Simulated assay, not measured.
Amino acid sequence: MTRTQITVFVLVALVALVLGLTVNKVLNSKGQGDPTALLDAGIVLLPQSRTLPDLNLLDQNGQAVAVNQLKGQWSLLFFGYTFCPDICPATLAQLRQLQGQLPAQTLANLQIVLVSVDPNRDTPEQLKKYLDYFDAGFIGFTGEEATLQKFANALSIPYIPADTSKENYTVDHSGNLVIIGPDGTQRGFIRAPLNNAKLAAQLPGLIQPAPRG
């Protein structure tokens, strides 16, 4: 290898190193942490944040909520239903346990939201009773079937509406969580099944307070 080739090789290596450090600095400055560790924890961040649709639902207290006003805190949205026989109670129990593994500052900037995929049975009253069993701080959203489907599709968490004429029907839905940032935009997903140990290690670096001003 000639001196010129060695010089070029060294310069290329230095440029690669600087670029690598710069990318790492940008990711860390955004509070996103190590991308590899995030993926290993099941956290998939979107390359560009996604604006939520302008839709109105009801919370567990019967109050109207605009889904594009989920701001000021980070939110984890889980699309499920209160009559779910397995995945929903298991996921909510895991999220309750996860809260106990997170530092106080992270908890103060995070809210858990169950979005119903079964509005036929999930009234606000039913949602409140169900969620209080897991954690009184959990939030529930319900509404018209068409609105809920639009919301789920916009977040890439589609589900199959059930045949409500059947007794004890079930609803096919995803077990993934949706990550909403404090600016009210979708930042990514958390893949199912949840790994609480890895999530507890990674979420504090991701969930940062909303900037003031």
Results as ranks from 00 to 15, higher is better:
residue 87 I to S: 12
residue 121 R to G: 02
residue 136 A to N: 11
residue 76 L to F: 14
residue 53 P to Q: 05
residue 44 V to K: 04
residue 82 T to S: 14
residue 132 D to Q: 15
residue 41 A to I: 13
residue 79 F to G: 09
residue 54 D to C: 01
residue 100 G to A: 08
residue 47 P to W: 08
residue 110 L to W: 02
residue 98 L to T: 07
residue 96 R to I: 08
residue 57 L to W: 03
residue 52 L to Q: 05
residue 88 C to F: 00
residue 109 N to Q: 14
residue 105 Q to E: 15
residue 68 N to H: 05
residue 42 G to N: 04
residue 107 L to E: 12
residue 46 L to G: 10
residue 101 Q to P: 04
residue 43 I to D: 11
residue 42 G to L: 00
residue 86 D to G: 09
residue 134 F to L: 06
residue 61 N to P: 01
residue 80 G to P: 09
residue 134 F to I: 10
residue 103 P to N: 11
residue 76 L to P: 08
residue 114 L to T: 08
residue 118 D to S: 11
residue 69 Q to L: 03
residue 134 F to T: 09
residue 52 L to D: 03
residue 53 P to T: 05
residue 79 F to H: 06
residue 48 Q to R: 13
residue 129 K to R: 12
residue 108 A to D: 15
residue 59 D to T: 06
residue 91 T to C: 07
residue 53 P to M: 02
residue 87 I to Q: 11
residue 130 Y to A: 07
residue 123 T to I: 01
residue 66 A to D: 00
residue 106 T to M: 08
residue 108 A to T: 14
residue 47 P to Q: 12
residue 102 L to E: 03
residue 116 S to C: 08
residue 125 E to N: 03
residue 108 A to R: 15
residue 101 Q to D: 06
residue 75 S to Q: 12
residue 134 F to V: 12
residue 68 N to L: 02
residue 100 G to K: 02
residue 66 A to N: 05
residue 84 C to M: 03
residue 111 Q to M: 10
residue 94 Q to M: 12
residue 78 F to V: 11
residue 42 G to W: 04
residue 42 G to Y: 02
residue 42 G to Q: 05
residue 53 P to H: 04
residue 96 R to K: 15
residue 127 L to R: 02
residue 130 Y to C: 13
residue 99 Q to Y: 12
residue 82 T to I: 09
residue 115 V to S: 03
residue 64 A to C: 00
residue 113 V to S: 06
residue 78 F to P: 14
residue 66 A to Q: 02
residue 74 W to G: 12
residue 75 S to P: 01
residue 95 L to Y: 13
residue 44 V to N: 02
residue 128 K to F: 00
residue 133 Y to N: 13
residue 76 L to Q: 08
residue 83 F to R: 13
residue 81 Y to Q: 11
residue 71 K to R: 15
residue 81 Y to S: 08
residue 61 N to H: 14
residue 111 Q to T: 14
residue 111 Q to R: 15
residue 50 R to S: 09
residue 126 Q to P: 00
residue 64 A to W: 01
residue 98 L to M: 05
residue 63 Q to M: 11
residue 96 R to T: 15
residue 73 Q to A: 14
residue 106 T to W: 09
residue 97 Q to W: 07
residue 78 F to M: 13
residue 67 V to S: 00
residue 128 K to E: 09
residue 42 G to E: 04
residue 82 T to P: 09
residue 100 G to H: 07
residue 76 L to A: 06
residue 72 G to T: 14
residue 84 C to Y: 00
residue 102 L to N: 01
residue 58 L to G: 01
residue 125 E to S: 07
residue 117 V to C: 07
residue 64 A to K: 08
residue 116 S to Y: 09
residue 91 T to I: 09
residue 107 L to A: 11
residue 127 L to F: 01
residue 95 L to I: 15
residue 84 C to Q: 04
residue 110 L to D: 03
residue 75 S to W: 13
residue 98 L to E: 08
residue 106 T to C: 09
residue 124 P to Q: 01
residue 111 Q to H: 10
residue 75 S to T: 13
residue 136 A to D: 11
residue 98 L to R: 05
residue 115 V to N: 00
residue 48 Q to H: 10
residue 108 A to L: 12
residue 45 L to A: 09
residue 95 L to N: 11
residue 86 D to A: 08
residue 121 R to T: 09
residue 43 I to A: 13
residue 41 A to W: 11
residue 83 F to Q: 10
residue 68 N to P: 05
residue 126 Q to D: 00
residue 47 P to R: 11
residue 59 D to A: 00
residue 90 A to F: 04
residue 73 Q to I: 05
